[in-house]
Design a binder for these strands. Structure first.
Lengths: 359, 359
DNA sequence: ACAAGTCTTGAGAACGCTCTCAAGATCAGT
DNA sequence: ACTGATCTTGAGAGCGTTCTCAAGACTTGT
């Protein structure tokens, strides 16, 4: 006789332990004012029965849903998605987010939102109504999407914006783009470079501006000029090709390029190859993001590591810690690091320049 | 006066439309036996009020949770994870899964399970109790994990196993590994190769066996021997290096290698380089998986494309279509394709062999 | 026109949990 | 001991939905 496995409810535990529902609930939620003996008795019953509270029921009665919603970009079609360059953004995000959520008894759900859609508000609104998440994590390019932040603010759902330095509504978490760019630039300067170009990201992203600032600050501190050494791309491969060509055309004496994305750096690498410039012998290259692909290029790229998992993890913690009334905005920085590989080296000797420094 | 935005419930809609809760519920769920006029009236109210049913409440009362749980592998720590080779497995999975789920009014949740943990049963059991998913999707290496499949079977939760050909319990979805390997081998044979080696995956995976079968079948059909042309790896880079070296040592006249993972193919590429073999001129290479990284190697690799997104999408559809009593097991194949890039070409001319065929 | 169905609608219980509030038990201060 | 405060426990309502079941409206066949 195959007994149908009935779900173990809080009621079963209460009966087993000989206490009221309420007491079990208190034990489960770590509520105060429960005598140790009671607590132990209930805990024993919970273990014996293998009780786990139903998320849905918790949401129904309580004020929390124990759900954090992560909003990601969605490309239009499967084909487009496949054609993308490989980043492990989502992998990273999930790892950081899911683990941290589960540590706090929360769950993470992922929503794919199409930037170009004009139903964004309706779609997202529906999701929010259905899920009623306790917090939302916005990832680029949605982190600074006014429509979305306004919607969340209106519904009073706490949210974190990843990769945004703008001190707008919600919690902003960033890798400290100014500092990261400064770090990359300083690294090159320490190697002896003095003509260091920057391929920045699109200006709509405030982080692009910050990276430019960091680069300029390091250059200025070393007494180096940065005129004509800046190009703007859109993070994509083609734009990187264009930018690298323009940079090299304008500055034949260029010895290093910092690219604001792995894809643009890879493009710059290809441009160097097509011009017969050896990397890193003739040209040093540093990229931003440190997605897995840059470890398999020839040569592997030195890169600023974007600590996505950790950033998302921090975001989750903030969201959970603050709770429903966490309306205090904040900007949090998670330090980025420089991963040295084989695309950076001392610059080539130049006529009239000593090996040890600049003229 | 800032009105606190109250959630719109089915009751609000009922009042607005002047009908009972039940009628609204019927309209929402497309139930039968509702007069068209009623239906329209209710629909109008729903739109006006922007009503969306609460997932949690639906789960509470109904028999379904509208949740599909996807179980993925988790590396032990963040550090390990970062050190991994970049695949976009999770990205792909999410895309296929989430979109298909939302088309059917479902939601996908992701659970990270550590293969090496001995708490698997407890952890997974807790998740199942908390979420009560309507279906579960197992991805490698969990697809053939007896502990997990037994647990799911016991709880009578329908599940799909991705990347498993074994006709065990649940729905098995595979890319048709035998056919895919046959396809790759045939492609090389058509180019004129006759010494085609295979670096297979670990034998614990039934798909490894199938790929070997496909390769042998194609070789046999062309009257080619396959002795000493097989090596087994573990899908990882290092094992690929070992296998490629062994293969090349044993068979100096080798002209093509099929590797059962991108990572092993990349390793083979590096081995070829270290031995002065030009790819594809001296050695042709085909990999399995077609993760983004193989497009950025030198040269970009010809690869068997693993249609992950589509497979997961199919899995979701199956799970939803079959419903809670979908106990009929099945094996479903989603055809893989060959993506031609620059790592395959005609074999080099050999003394005593005409350009048009074998001796 | 009447019985026997079939459609359409609604009332009320139930799902598993947390919240609010009240009652009894325990404790401190006199 | 006695009063008032604090701890501990439990009873009962309520969350938003679907389920079951019954009642009324409408068919159909004769």
């Amino acid at each position: 006789m195959a007994r149908v496995r009935k779900t173990v409810t809080i009621r079963d535990v209460a009966e087993d332990a000989g206490v009221s529902l309420q007491t079990v609930s208190r034990v489960v939620n770590g509520g105060p004012n429960v005598r140790p003996e009671m607590r132990d008795k209930v805990r024993a019953s919970i273990d014996r029965l293998g009780y786990v509270p139903s998320l849905a029921a918790q949401r129904m009665s309580g004020s929390r849903s124990y759900i954090i919603l992560a909003i990601n970009d969605r490309e239009r079609t499967l084909a487009d998605w496949r054609a993308r360059l490989g980043t492990d953004w989502v992998d990273q995000m999930l790892l950081g987010g899911i683990l941290t959520c589960s540590q706090h008894g929360y769950r993470m759900m992922v929503e794919l939102v199409d930037t170009h859609s004009d139903h964004v508000e309706r779609e997202l609104g529906a999701t929010l109504s259905a899920l009623q998440p306790d917090g939302v994590i916005l990832t680029p390019p949605h982190s600074e999407n006014q429509l979305i932040t306004a919607l969340l603010a209106e519904r009073k759902i706490p949210f974190a914006r990843i990769g945004s330095n703008a001190p707008g509504p919600g919690i902003a978490l960033t890798m400290g783009d100014e500092g990261a760019a400064h770090l990359a630039t300083s690294h090159l300067i320490a190697l002896g470079h003095d003509r260091i170009a920057m391929i920045a990201g699109p200006t709509q992203y405030s982080l692009s501006g910050w990276r430019i600032e960091g680069w300029k600050r390091a250059m200025a501190a070393a007494g180096l000029p940065h005129d004509s050494l800046l190009e703007v791309g859109d993070f994509g491969y083609e734009s990187g090709t264009r930018a690298a060509r323009a940079l090299l055309d304008r500055n034949p004496d260029l010895t290093a390029i910092i690219a604001s994305s792995d894809q643009m750096a890879l493009a710059a690498l290809e441009v160097a190859r097509e011009r017969g410039l050896a990397v890193p012998h003739d040209l040093s290259l540093i990229s931003f993001d440190n997605t897995p692909i840059v470890r398999f290029s020839q040569p592997p790229l030195t890169a600023i590591d974007q600590p996505i998992a950790e950033t998302v993890s921090r975001a989750v913690e903030q969201l959970i810690a603050r709770g429903p009334d966490g309306d205090a905005d904040a900007v949090i920085e998670v330090a980025a690091g420089l991963v040295e590989r084989s695309s950076t080296a001392r610059p080539p000797a130049r006529p009239g320049v000593t090996a040890s420094g600049r003229a």
